[in-house]
Simulated assay, not measured.
Amino acid sequence: MTKEDVLRESSEGDSVLGRNSLISRNSERPVIHQVASAPMPSDCEFSFFDPNDPLCREVLLDPRTTVPELFAVLRQWVPQVQRNISVIGNEILKRGCGVNDRDGLTDMTLLHYCCKAGAPGIGDAESAASFARQLLSLGAEPSLRSRWTNMNALHYAAYFDVPPLIRVVLQASQPGEVDATCSDFDFGTALHIAASNLCSSAVKCLLELGANPAFRVCDFLYDY
C-alpha cells in the first residue's frame, strides 16, 4: 500500500463520516484519518503547540478542532506536546476517534504515539505509561504496526528507550511478542533496535522481560 492509497482511503472515509471523521469509539473497523495541519492560534508567539498556553488550550478544548488537527499536534516533537500526551490524546478520544484509528500521515495509532512520548529528555515516561494503560483498557491493540515503518508499539518503545512503556506493552501482548521482528530494521527484534540505537535502559528491560539475546537476524531470514 502506498501513501496515496492511505490518503484516498482517508478521503473516502471522510465522505461517509463527515468533515471531522467522527466515529464510534467501539467501531469494529479502525479509520485512517485525513491529513491536516496543526491548529495554531492566530496570535501565537511560537511555532509549536503548547497546551499550557491559554490560547493553545482554547484551541485544544474547542470541539471544532478536529481529530486530524490533533494528530498533527502529536506529530510535533517538542516537550510541550509530548509531556501532554494524555491531555491531547483524551481530547482526540472525546471527539469519537477509535482507539485503534490511525493518523493519515504516519499511519500511527495513539498507542504508537504514546510509546514515543516517553522518550528521555523530551517526554514523561510515567505519564505516557499511564495513558498507555488507559488506551489498552479501551481495546488498543499492541501488535498493530505502522505501514510506513512496520514498527509495533514495542518497537517504538525500544527505539525511544522507554522501559515503562516496554513493560506496559508486553503485559498486554501475546507470548512471544517480545521477539517480534521488524522489516525496517533488517528483521531485527526490539532488542536489536534498542541495542543498535544505544538505548541501554531499553536493552536491560527487554532482557529482564525475556527477550532472546541469541536471536540472530540471519537465522530468521533463512527461515523466512
Rank of each mutant, 00 (worst) to 15 (best):
V203A: 14
H192D: 10
L221V: 14
I166R: 01
S200Q: 11
D43I: 03
A129D: 06
A140E: 05
P41M: 00
S143G: 14
S10A: 15
V178A: 02
F160R: 05
M1C: 10
C182Q: 12
A158K: 05
A194W: 08
I166T: 00
R167F: 01
N197C: 10
R19Q: 06
K204T: 13
N90H: 07
T2S: 15
G89H: 01
L144D: 04
L60F: 00
L165C: 09
L136T: 00
D101F: 03
P175M: 04
R102C: 09
D179V: 03
Q76F: 09
S201G: 11
F187N: 09
Y222T: 15
G98I: 05
G123M: 13
L7I: 12
L144Y: 07
E91Y: 10
R83P: 09
S173H: 00
L105H: 13
V67G: 00
P54W: 10
K204H: 06
P120V: 09
P41C: 09
A72H: 04
E208I: 02
V31L: 10
E58F: 02
P120K: 11
E177R: 01
E45V: 08
P41L: 05
T189P: 13
L74C: 06
F187E: 02
I32E: 10
S24W: 06
V67S: 05
S130T: 11
E126Q: 14
D5C: 11
C199Q: 15
Q174C: 06
P30R: 08
A157F: 08
P213K: 07
A140Q: 04
L209W: 05
L198T: 07
S137I: 03
I122W: 10
D101I: 08
C97P: 05
S146C: 12
F46N: 11
N52K: 14
G104P: 10
Q34H: 11
M40H: 14
L144V: 04
E9C: 04
L198Q: 14
L206N: 06
P41T: 01
I166V: 10
H155I: 04
S127A: 15
S86I: 01
L55C: 07
D43H: 06
C56K: 04
N90P: 02
I193C: 12
L209G: 01
A214W: 09
S21E: 08
D179F: 02
V67K: 01
S130P: 00
P39L: 04
S183P: 01
N100T: 00
A125T: 08
S47Y: 12
S183F: 07
G210T: 08
Q80R: 13
V87R: 13
V217I: 15
G98W: 02
S86P: 01
T189W: 08
G176H: 03
L111P: 04
R83Q: 15
A117Q: 07
T65W: 02
A190F: 06
R75S: 13
G104L: 12
